[in-house]
Simulated assay, not measured.
Amino acid sequence: MQISVSSTLTVYHDGQFWVGLAEHVEDGRYGVVRIVFGAEPSDEEIQKFVTSKWEKLSFFGGEPAEASKPAKNPKRRAREAAKTLKRPAMSTKAQQALAAQREALKQESAHARSQRRTEEADARYEQRKLKRKQKHRGH
């Protein structure tokens, strides 16, 4: 059994910050993570990031996506590499994966916010109930 693993880190300037786009294909699953560096990272900083923090990145949020099959022919691999270099820094597949990740985070925070809101409303209701009870007793 052979497992195919491919990782790519693309660093680009998005107009405001230097951003790293880490794409990872493992056994047919495609994952992407966006890392904001802020100031322009040096080669040493990028190497340090890859060696120390790469394994902590969460590439796969949920469902697996399709991956391209590796080419057998070396000439085809060279053509695909040249084609990849001509493409823009952010692939549409990466954009879709990041959008799905953002949507999942948005839903989680909305759920947490509504949960917190109901707990606060319950606490206010209990406070009002206690106050009415104390007034009724004449305190």
Results as ranks from 00 to 15, higher is better:
4 S>T: 09
13 H>N: 05
108 E>H: 00
9 L>R: 04
124 R>D: 13
76 R>N: 11
99 A>F: 10
113 R>L: 13
72 K>W: 13
81 A>L: 14
21 L>D: 01
99 A>Q: 01
138 G>T: 05
34 R>V: 05
46 I>V: 12
120 E>A: 10
77 R>H: 04
100 A>G: 05
104 A>K: 14
86 K>H: 08
1 M>P: 08
113 R>P: 09
138 G>I: 03
138 G>H: 07
76 R>S: 10
23 E>W: 11
24 H>W: 08
20 G>C: 04
116 R>L: 00
84 T>I: 07
58 S>C: 13
1 M>R: 14
33 V>S: 05
25 V>R: 12
99 A>I: 12
11 V>M: 01
90 M>E: 11
132 R>P: 00
121 A>P: 00
26 E>S: 08
131 K>N: 10
34 R>F: 08
79 R>V: 09
53 K>M: 12
66 E>F: 01
6 S>C: 10
91 S>E: 04
40 E>K: 03
122 D>L: 02
68 S>F: 01
71 A>Y: 07
76 R>L: 14
104 A>P: 03
106 K>F: 14
120 E>L: 13
30 Y>M: 05
28 G>Y: 02
49 F>Q: 05
13 H>I: 03
54 W>P: 00
120 E>N: 00
9 L>D: 02
96 Q>W: 03
57 L>M: 01
34 R>Y: 05
62 G>R: 07
138 G>V: 00
88 P>S: 02
48 K>S: 15
9 L>M: 06
79 R>N: 02
39 A>G: 06
67 A>E: 00
18 W>L: 05
73 N>L: 07
45 E>A: 10
31 G>T: 01
103 E>N: 15
44 E>H: 08
83 K>W: 12
106 K>L: 14
103 E>V: 06
39 A>M: 10
110 A>W: 01
112 A>I: 14
9 L>F: 13
14 D>P: 09
106 K>W: 13
71 A>W: 04
94 A>N: 07
90 M>T: 14
103 E>L: 15
125 Y>K: 15
106 K>E: 05
17 F>L: 00
137 R>T: 07
16 Q>V: 13
23 E>S: 15
126 E>I: 10
40 E>L: 03
48 K>T: 14
52 S>K: 14
37 F>L: 01
4 S>V: 14
68 S>T: 15
33 V>C: 06
1 M>L: 14
7 S>C: 05
42 S>K: 09
29 R>H: 07
39 A>F: 08
55 E>Q: 02
136 H>P: 02
109 S>C: 12
52 S>R: 13
42 S>M: 08
118 T>V: 11
40 E>G: 03
59 F>L: 01
81 A>D: 10
139 H>D: 03
53 K>L: 08
44 E>R: 10
104 A>Y: 07
51 T>L: 15
100 A>M: 03
93 K>S: 09
96 Q>D: 15
